[in-house]
Design a protein around this nucleic acid. Structure first.
Lengths: 188, 188
DNA sequence: TTTACTTTTTGATATAGGTCAAATGGAGAT
DNA sequence: ATCTCCATTTGACCTATATCAAAAAGTAAA
């Protein structure tokens, strides 16, 4: 879904409001492997993935990467609490394929939030959607077997396994890549 | 923290606005073990715990209860996505001790959200705070040992272990009560 | 205080998934 | 085609935590 449609789907902005809002976003072409924000830095942009995909991840003390989330086309991508609270990010944000994104700075977002009551509503709804998704994942991790988590992911994101390295998917699912490899082998 | 203070801490409401907002909440005295909302029902109240505590939990297929979250005094309590999206709740909400809560209906909340731009902002910030907390827990569950999770919980909520049954804490931490009991024994 | 009931602890055993190490496979560069 | 470099798979073994079962400790009622 495109950014304009995404905005309109949850809040009925007028054409004029929509144009104003969109004008505060900037189109960016981002190359594969580019890091958008690093752990410990304040995330001052919110991204909408128009085409391509990205992920958030962090490093464990032993230096291993742990994928926290994947962001596909038609989704907002950011270190949400860092962006909205202007606190240091716990995560890295990285682009996984050559992508087109629309970004908005924190200053522009604050401007729009202050200007439009409807913009506050839009972001509130966005935050609640993200929250639902995180809660779903928390339940999956806490109470499903490695196999069940994998099956769920495949049913939800059938193409992801062809687009990103196994190791990213494994850490996203909270298991080692060896375990994921074995699960895959036993596929029917 | 009291409800009025909580509101003022994140958004500078005027005294008049504050009074109007507070007038849409209703004070309720809730007895221990009372269930505020059941799985599958739409949650139409948001609660602020003034005194006492509650939890959210769900039932696994095998009938076991899994505590999802504890809500202490000075915190909002609800099945957030059910309340704000008016969709069936995945959880039960239950009061664990005789408590005093302030509740607001979904209709009143919608009224306030539409009336006050600042109210939208308040709820947006609240949603983002909840999101941060859920993400922290997700990381803990995904990548810490049972022991580490327990130690973390004790440091954050030192008194909880005296106020609720072991089994609730164990399932909250994603482990069996036998494991939690053994961890406790090895405390220094 | 005795009885009945619930919660917590302890013990013995099982298992999912982790760790470490090596082998295989694939993709790009020369 | 061959070499190099990573990604993936496989194998052998290990460990944290679950499961099942029973004992002990608390709590409340009679």
């Amino acid at each position: 879904m495109k950014l304009a449609d995404f905005l309109l789907t949850s809040v009925p902005f007028s054409q004029e409001e929509l144009n104003d809002i969109l004008s505060h976003f900037e189109k960016e072409y981002v190359k594969k492997n580019q890091v958008l924000i690093r752990e410990g830095r304040v995330c001052n942009k919110l991204y909408f993935v128009d085409l391509g995909m990205g992920r958030s991840y962090y490093l464990k003390k032993d230096g291993k990467e742990v994928t926290q989330w994947f962001f596909g086309a038609g989704e907002f991508m950011s270190s949400a609490d860092s962006f909205f609270k202007q606190t240091p990010s716990f995560y890295y944000l990285e682009i996984l394929e050559d992508s087109i994104v629309y970004s908005i700075s924190n200053e522009n977002m604050d401007f729009l939030l202050a200007k439009y009551h409807k913009m506050e509503k839009f972001i509130r709804l966005l935050a609640i959607d993200i929250l639902s998704n995180v809660i779903l994942k928390l339940n999956a991790i806490q109470f499903q077997t490695a196999r069940e988590r994998y099956d769920y992911m495949i049913s939800e994101f059938p193409d992801i396994s062809h687009r990103v390295p196994l190791s990213h998917i494994a850490s996203y699912l909270g298991m080692t890549q060896e375990t994921l490899s074995r699960i895959r082998r036993n596929d029917s």
